[in-house]
């Protein structure tokens, strides 16, 4: 009889859960019934460029920073998750002629005219939340993709697989060339088989210094740390010295990562995009 190490076998089985998730995503109900859902699955070293780009963007983006640390720690432990990419194709032009107005245009025809102009523009990689993602899309078709993603995530959940749907993973994968022609995308990390990976992230232990954590809370909900506001310029209770050494809330220009470092980072991102796209093209050619 064969012998198996449970943890190893469990993590190897993630791909079979990914298969069930893909089945669920493709079976998910739709509002329009005409949305084409695309599913791609990345494993092993295919995650490397994704993790690296998360790290570069993470220099000035907390979400990417945390996702990079988490996935890097999975990699270091030799248990990378299976990444399931889900996207929707042909969402721009709904083809529905419902003229519902949800997109902000009175008719689908007007939306499509705006779409044609927008799609001529080169992809914008400056906003992490829209990392080269083309807009606009039909609102109803976006809901369809949302439902597909949810069915995949719920399937993972029901099989007790630690998972998290991550926009960062979705948009970066898309920039790297996966989910070609998709307009809405998300990446669902499946596994590793542990109690907590993506919530209460153990991988982020000691990854932030205390000052940063406290500062983050003060930026996120300043009112909570505010002194008496009746003065019109309330003091921030930033430490025990808040009364003697006063500090105030101001709307300030963001402290950017040093320009040089940023440019070097983006150059590396572009290089990774080129390399990965070449690899994807090569793979497609060999399969054809």
């Amino acid at each position: 009889m064969a012998y198996y190490d449970g943890k190893k076998l469990a993590n190897e089985g993630l791909l079979s859960v990914a298969q069930l998730c893909a089945m669920a995503a493709l079976k998910a109900p739709q509002m329009t019934g005409t949305t084409e859902v695309k599913v791609e699955i990345l494993t092993g070293e295919d995650l490397d460029p994704l993790i690296e780009v998360l790290g570069i963007l993470g220099q000035d983006n907390t979400v990417c920073y945390g996702d990079n640390k988490t996935l890097q720690s999975c990699k270091d432990k030799g248990t990378v998750p299976v990444v399931m990419l889900i996207g929707g194709i042909g969402l721009g032009n709904s083809g529905l002629d419902w003229d519902c107005g949800a997109c902000g245009f009175a008719t689908c025809k007007e939306h499509d005219a705006y779409l044609a102009v927008e799609r001529e523009k080169p992809p914008d990689f400056t906003r992490p939340s829209a990392f080269g993602t083309p807009g606009p899309v039909c609102v109803w078709k976006a809901i369809d993709v949302g439902m597909a993603m949810d069915w995949a995530a719920a399937t993972a959940f029901q099989h007790n697989i630690e998972n998290r749907a991550m926009a960062s993973v979705g948009v970066i994968s898309q920039a790297l060339g996966y989910l070609a022609t998709s307009e809405v995308s998300i990446g669902i990390c499946l596994g590793p088989c542990e109690p907590e990976v993506y919530y209460n992230r153990p991988s982020l232990k000691e990854q932030y210094d205390k000052e940063l954590v406290v500062n983050y809370m003060m930026r996120a909900f300043p009112t909570h740390f505010m002194g008496f506001p009746g003065t019109g310029d309330p003091r921030m209770k930033y430490s025990a010295e808040w009364e003697t050494d006063a500090r105030y809330v101001r709307v300030a220009k963001r402290e950017e990562v040093a320009q040089e470092k940023k440019e070097a980072g983006m150059a590396r991102v572009m290089q990774l995009i080129m390399e990965t796209r070449a690899k994807i093209a090569e793979r497609a050619a060999s399969e054809a």
Binding site: F221, T223, H224, M226, F228, P229, G230, P234
Partner: peptide, 13 residues
């Protein structure tokens, strides 16, 4: 707690 501080400080402001 954060909602409570907002309520208090909003009213004073």
């Amino acid at each position: 707690n954060v909602v409570e501080s907002l309520r208090n400080k909003y009213v004073i402001s």
